[in-house]
Amino acid sequence: MLVDAHTHVLPRDYPADAPECFPRMEPVDGDSARELLWGAVRFRARDVFFDAERRVAEQDAQGVDVEVLSPMPPLLRYDLPAAEGLSLARHVNEFTAALSAAAPGRLIGFGMVPMQDPDAAATELKAIRDQGLCGVEITSNVLGASIGEERFRGFFLEAQRLDLPVFVHAMPAATDRLPRSAAGTYVVGLEGATAAASMIVGGTAEACPDLRISFSHAAGGLAMMLPRAQYFWSGTWNEEPPRPDRAIAHVGPAPLEVARRFWYDATVFDRRAVRYLVDLLGADRLLVGSDHPAMPREEPAGATVRSVELTAEQLEDITWRNAFRWLGTQSAR
């Protein structure tokens, strides 16, 4: 069995009376695809983005049993006025819920919320759950602010209370330290690491011990930062027993202990990186992901994970069991 825990959805259409700041989906002549038009964004979306039958057909062809669907990250526009952001979220959530309901057991939908208004975002979580959506997607920063800042803590506490998993998708923040061409590569890696680190050092992870949260692309460079953070906390190398007398910042729980409560989509594009993640964070923390259909899946799906030397139990954890643990649901097997 294989669960792809990182795939995306786009609504086929938007209401005719939608605010001018909403995106549009225009037909493509002679094609079942549609074009997303939104400000400077121009994106040709294949019909698999919004057609349940086509999605399931591609699953069958590519060896995938279940997909977790989350909105395409450009839809998570926190720069919109809060009321319009909420209206957009509700439209996307309604579409995602209907798409998932068209193929129960094969498509598991996540909603979105207007994080520019943390209180409204927290309040909307119950509506997401009541629609039959199984979780919520947010981006790694909110208009440049780290998600671990205290003003967002109420949102995570409410997600924990409602038992809703959270998927954090890396999203570039405005920066002049790297060229714009690096936004989808290096900047995304930095953003994922910063988001996860902010949850640890900001105290939100400690305040929400039962929160089920996953980070796209293994939280970027986090896994390379954690051993240094662990050294500062413990005063020792190689995760040896702590020496508080030698520690530089022995405050709160051990960084690695907290990081091993998160889940990580192992779309890291190299078996050596997967091996490191297994060794450092554990095979029970990793999920298969693909960014499908925004990016092409491996052929066959999950090939890199399967190429790593793992026990049968570790492989089953990564390919499907962990996804259902993160979702908090039972699988069909």
Rank of each mutant, 00 (worst) to 15 (best):
91 H>F: 11
230 Q>L: 10
149 E>V: 01
209 P>F: 05
233 W>S: 01
144 G>M: 06
224 M>Y: 14
244 P>M: 05
12 R>Y: 11
74 P>Y: 04
109 G>T: 06
131 Q>F: 06
255 P>N: 04
15 P>D: 09
143 L>Y: 05
181 S>Y: 10
90 R>Y: 00
20 E>R: 15
143 L>P: 08
93 N>G: 03
41 V>L: 15
212 R>Q: 06
227 P>M: 00
273 A>S: 13
307 S>C: 08
249 A>W: 12
58 E>S: 12
330 Q>P: 00
234 S>C: 06
36 L>T: 00
146 S>L: 14
236 T>H: 09
126 K>T: 14
128 I>T: 09
306 R>N: 11
233 W>K: 03
254 A>R: 14
268 V>T: 04
80 L>Q: 05
98 A>R: 15
69 L>A: 08
192 G>N: 01
220 G>N: 07
312 A>I: 12
198 S>P: 04
111 G>T: 07
220 G>T: 01
107 L>F: 06
173 A>F: 10
41 V>N: 11
53 E>C: 10
79 D>T: 14
130 D>Y: 06
228 R>S: 07
214 S>T: 07
59 Q>N: 09
34 R>M: 02
66 V>M: 03
286 L>R: 06
198 S>Q: 03
44 R>D: 01
186 Y>V: 15
92 V>T: 06
1 M>H: 13
7 T>Q: 08
299 E>R: 15
247 A>R: 10
105 G>W: 08
18 A>R: 13
101 A>L: 10
243 R>P: 00
206 E>F: 02
214 S>P: 00
13 D>L: 07
55 R>G: 11
87 S>G: 13
147 I>L: 03
274 V>F: 02
49 F>L: 09
215 F>M: 01
21 C>V: 15
41 V>F: 06
86 L>M: 11
66 V>Q: 11
61 A>M: 04
107 L>W: 03
81 P>E: 07
185 T>Q: 09
311 T>P: 06
40 A>W: 12
106 R>A: 04
166 V>R: 02
227 P>S: 04
15 P>L: 10
18 A>E: 10
206 E>A: 14
267 T>I: 12
242 P>F: 01
251 V>S: 12
213 I>T: 05
290 S>Y: 03
284 D>R: 06
84 E>H: 05
291 D>S: 07
328 G>T: 04
170 A>N: 08
251 V>D: 13
54 R>W: 04
180 R>K: 14
90 R>A: 02
160 Q>T: 05
44 R>L: 14
181 S>N: 03
212 R>C: 02
93 N>F: 00
65 D>F: 00
90 R>I: 00
21 C>R: 12
47 D>E: 15
321 R>T: 05
227 P>Y: 08
263 W>Y: 15
183 A>W: 12
47 D>K: 14
37 L>S: 13
63 G>Y: 12
131 Q>E: 10
136 V>G: 05
43 F>L: 15
60 D>L: 13
58 E>P: 02
303 A>Y: 07
50 F>H: 02
75 L>V: 09
222 L>Q: 05
96 T>C: 08
105 G>R: 11
40 A>N: 13
145 A>M: 11
71 P>Y: 05
301 A>W: 04
147 I>F: 03
4 D>F: 10
329 T>V: 15
120 A>R: 15
171 M>F: 14
328 G>A: 03
198 S>T: 07
325 R>S: 07
38 W>Q: 09
221 G>V: 01
